[in-house]
Design a binder for these strands. Structure first.
Length: 313
DNA sequence: TACCAGGAAACAC
DNA sequence: GTGTTTCATGGT
């Protein structure tokens, strides 16, 4: 546990004695696309159809617009609060090259996000920039998601597979995601079909083809062990090794994943002097070095490299 | 204008 | 299996 106890606070909950929780680090380390800073130390996000705010006052953190029941059911896990990041940071800091990055991003926590939203968001992330990914995810939510009113404004939940299945490829292209529109469209269909078959399988026997489609059920994929999960995710259009690693790490609780993008590749070159290493080799190198803590190490490295614009001649 | 952004697919070998 | 090329889009 990375907090001592809860205290009711005007329309929310205060986390007393919370450790390793810095909103700026958590929401700006590139793992999520639906959190925005409303003022210094205060962020607003949309999670599982709820609008939520997180604020930092000295050493306390307050979660706004949330009940204790919702915290126990959803958000304690969402914020990964059962985990003690102090232990992870101590272990990773034994590597003097990683210590600097751990200190720089000392308040990072890996969020446990929704698999479908994470899948679609990271398909859009391919060869794209974070501000533009956020804009695209926001537009998708506005067009196909369920509206939520909060403090006199309207926000939009990320659409369900059924809701997003109403979007044509041309509709998606209108969002401004270019060549990724085809991937998103086909992947949404595959997930939605698997979801429907999952329900139908309760009342009738499925054909062989249907049973094959059923394997693209996100619940089933999430329950697979690391290697199989990584392979299964890549059956979706637009999902390669890196995007699959992100989905596993950020929404399926697989912390041994090591997503290698341009920044992590730069960071690994910069800190570990591995200049001419290919992406798959860099991934293998990282997983071998960091083992079950690969995902955490990767996120400290990514945040440090990107914020400080690490350069490798 | 060329290059870059949390890469993947298609293709060559 | 490993190494190139192409794929939209908007910002430097």
């Amino acid at each position: 546990m990375d907090y001592n106890h809860l205290e009711p606070s005007l329309g929310g909950l205060k986390l007393i004695g919370v450790r390793n929780f810095k909103p700026k680090h958590i929401f700006e380390c590139g793992q999520c696309f639906r959190w925005d800073m409303v003022k210094e130390g205060r962020y607003l996000g949309i999670v599982r159809g709820k609008v939520l705010e997180v604020s930092e006052e000295g050493s306390d953190i307050t979660l706004h617009n949330i009940t204790e029941e919702e915290f126990r059911d959803i958000f304690e896990y969402y914020f990964d609060l059962e985990r003690e990041y102090g232990l992870i940071k101590d272990e990773l800091s034994k590597d003097p090259l990683l210590k600097e990055s751990v200190e720089f991003g000392h308040g990072i926590r890996i969020l446990n996000q929704e698999p479908f939203e994470t899948l679609i968001s990271f398909i859009i992330s391919a060869n794209n920039g974070i501000p533009r990914i956020k804009a695209a995810v926001a537009k998708i939510s506005e067009q196909w998601g369920t509206p939520i009113s909060y403090n006199g404004s309207t926000y939009y939940a990320f659409p369900s597979p059924e809701q997003l299945s109403k979007a044509s490829e041309a509709d998606l292209r209108g969002i401004g995601i270019g060549f990724r529109a085809k991937y998103v469209h086909r992947t949404v269909r595959a997930v939605y079909e698997a979801e429907c078959l999952e329900r139908e399988s309760l009342s009738r026997k499925l054909s062989d083809d249907e049973a094959l489609s059923l394997e693209q059920s996100l619940d089933r994929i999430a329950s697979l062990p690391h290697k199989l999960c990584h392979n299964a995710l890549q059956c979706f259009e637009g999902v390669g090794p890196k995007v699959a690693d992100c989905i596993m790490l950020f929404s399926m609780g697989k912390q041994e994943a090591f997503p290698v993008d341009v920044w992590v590749k730069k960071a690994m070159s910069f800190f570990y002097k591995a200049p001419e290493m290919s992406l798959p080799k860099t991934r293998e190198f990282g997983q071998e070095k960091f083992g079950s803590l690969s995902g955490f190490a990767q996120q400290y490295l990514f945040y440090n490299a990107r914020e400080n614009k690490v350069k490798v001649e």
